[in-house]
Design a protein around this nucleic acid. Sequence first.
RNA 1: GGCACCGUCGCCAAGUGGUAAGGCAGAGGUCUGCAAAACCUUUAUCGGCGGUUCGAGUCCGCCCGGUGCCUCCA
Length: 377
Amino acid sequence: MFAESRSTIIAMLVMPDQGLFLIPFSSLIERGKAYESEGDVFYSVSSFDGYGQLSGKNIEDLQAGARVDVNEKKRDALDFVLWKKSKPDEPNWNSPWGAGRPGWHIECSAMGRKYFGDTFDIHGGGKDLVFPHHENEIAQSCGVTGCLPVRFWVHNGFVNIDKEKMSKSLGNFFTLRDIYKKFHPEALRLFLVSSHYRSPIDFSMKNLEDAEKVILRFYEALDNAGSIVGDHNVSLEEIKNHPFLAKCEKAMNDDFNTAVVVAHLNEESRGINSECSLIGNGEGGKKNLALRLSTFKFVGELLGLLTGSPEKIRQEIFNIKKTELELDVEKIECLINDRNEARKNKDWGRADECREELAQMGVVLEDTSKGTEWKIK
RNA sequence: GGCACCGUCGCCAAGUGGUAAGGCAGAGGUCUGCAAAACCUUUAUCGGCGGUUCGAGUCCGCCCGGUGCCUCCA
């Protein structure tokens, strides 16, 4: 199942139609599970036995802790709105109870039911939605269909900034666009999957920089092994039978433990690099390395990583840094040429001067068999 | 005030009963003109106190510290 998921995740994305999404909650009134009050329709929480089960709350605690003024229209402070009478200047739709709009939990129940049916497997969301949003969603859906709408709830921890949750209403948020000005999307993605989805994750430049170093190391392994094995054909069947995949699958089956998969990827990238140097000494085993490489990339792709070629990623990261740091590429290349000229003449003093000057600009050199490459520290 | 969750190496982060994964940073080494990259080696007894157990980071209680939810934001 894990092995196939790669091709199915994307296909599930649907852009819902714009418009009004409703579940037929009018029948709830007939059955005493909801009531109309001055143009509003409320769900009667006491009519649903399972209320509080998802969030682990009991109804007595909730009532004792109610800190907000009770809405006099409600029979019970816990009751929530299914249909809300609109104020004169608000968008509204006609209904048996007058002009209004759906309650704030309705659209989730309605869309889930429309696209996935009365019961579907997994519903995600942030931890803060557990109560009351998802609790109410369950209550109203169940009231209408008679069955639980969701088999597994997957609630993720917050992205924090300075220990406080990142949220639109607090204003302490970054957009992806902001982040991509400094970091490659795969660096961000690696950062996100480096911790368990239920844990809070601290957003910081240091953490993203660390993730960027690691993703580059993964690509380094891809590059090293790729240049040795060339275009070896590896079948999907062979990948599926590889022990490395089984290891990662085990971690994923344990409540999506992506952090452990990342640890496995780290170990495997080291293993691949080691094997590359062995093969470089003429010990053969290219087929084995090709399989190892393909499986490594396959697992990476399951996490949305390692989707490009090493050259492509390096170029993309390079472009980001170049723009961010406003580098003078011509000057850099000029200095590199000077240095290589000096090296030819074994003028090590001059060569080191050039590198020192580049280092001042944040540029690090790498002499490879293909020539001198450079990157930004 | 009520109810939850969290506190693991300098930093990030797995592990939820059998004697601490992984990464970054640091140190030493191989390689290199010197470097870089890569590779090798190396660094923790888990907020505090008490309890349960043959055995606890992992269970229970209390304390300290942090966060979240308790609202017609979705």
